[in-house]
Design a protein around this nucleic acid. Structure first.
Lengths: 194, 194
DNA sequence: TGTTATCTATCTACTGATAGATAAATACGC
DNA sequence: GCGTATTTATCTATCAGTAGATAGATAACA
């Protein structure tokens, strides 16, 4: 947590993450990161020899931080919708505060053009986040006894909706479109959607 | 429709679209498009002076084709879920056949780093597709009399789920994750999801 | 002749990456 | 504690490759 007065290594990851999350992996450069940090591009290479190294390091840190923020899947209210709300709140935070995509949603879109090391980290993010959501659902009355395949379907659908929602909200310049995704969750209303 | 024996202009759009949909706007170049078509990069510039022009033209054609394929929003079965299935089928087609993202899902992710002309086309895609979905829902028994805001929420959520689903399925290398998104649509099952 | 479509050749800017110099901090032998 | 050796962190300078873009020649065709 504590970061020394001029933690170059940390700042490199911070700025690289911000650049990837706003413009994408292919639209950021060593020079751009270096400029943002206030060093030369060779210094960024010192910490991360290749761009793939840097990208993978950013993704790994992001995933760890994300899952840490989610916390214990079994914690919180007992309704099945609670973990879905927690996911939404976490995504909403980054989106509304900084107008940034989920890092791995961005990487996932670009997946076919990414170095393998980076692509692997993006896949790991979704695997772990799906697992968390399944565990959270399984730990609640609604989920107990449900077949794993069904829990997985609901988990994937929930995360997919959040990722796609960020894209649409950012593209249309209306972040309320994303907030509304939480509003009509079937279980919170009398009638289910179409 | 009819394309002459060596329709360079058409091939340029075809290959540019394929490149954007697999790797993203920032990861394709005039040279790459030219090579795929079998001409020199200057020829691509002849048809599209700038990269923004080319990107916008690709997006415009894509949106027009997509909405044409969707057809009349009021056509088809009367269940509210019918238009959602039509959207899913259309997205599924491109994803499973060629492993490609929705063009505008890709552009939407990269939106903050796109030239304005391209960003505008991406926004237009979502605006028109949301409008189509709202019209399709409103034309069915389920949707009649529903407030516009609710129809919009459902439309956005549906499209968001598809876009995010493509990202997750491609990233995890398991296209069945996308197919399953259609399986547990609330209205098609007895009980609603969580 | 003028228009359309294509080429070759080139420009500047930027990319990721490397080499080598340098200064400061740290560790080690005594 | 002192002097030396090593490591750490940063710089300058540069590389080959590629980016988007342009100029101008050339051929085909109306």
């Amino acid at each position: 947590m504590s970061r020394s007065e001029s933690d170059v290594a940390g700042k490199i990851l911070d700025h690289a993450e911000a650049l990837v999350r706003t413009q994408g992996y292919n639209a950021f450069s060593f020079r751009e990161v270096a400029k943002a940090v206030g060093v030369k591009s060779a210094t960024v290479h010192y910490y991360h020899p290749t761009k793939a190294d840097l990208g993978a390091a950013v993704a790994r840190r992001y995933t760890d931080r994300f899952l840490k923020a989610l916390g214990d899947p079994a914690a919180g209210p007992a309704e099945a919708v609670a973990p879905l709300r927690r996911l939404h709140a976490l995504a909403s935070d980054a989106l509304t505060r900084d107008g940034m995509m989920c890092l791995c949603g961005m990487l996932g879109a670009e997946i076919a053009g990414l170095p393998p090391a980076v692509a692997d980290e993006a896949a790991a993010f979704f695997r772990r986040t799906i697992d968390w959501t399944m565990a959270a659902l399984a730990a609640r009355p609604w989920g107990r006894g449900r077949p794993e395949a069904e829990l997985r379907r609901v988990a994937v659908k929930t995360i997919a909706t959040l990722e796609g929602g960020m894209i649409i909200a950012r593209t249309m310049g209306d972040l309320s479109l994303f907030e509304d995704l939480a509003a009509d969750n079937p279980a919170t209303e009398a009638g289910a959607g179409p």
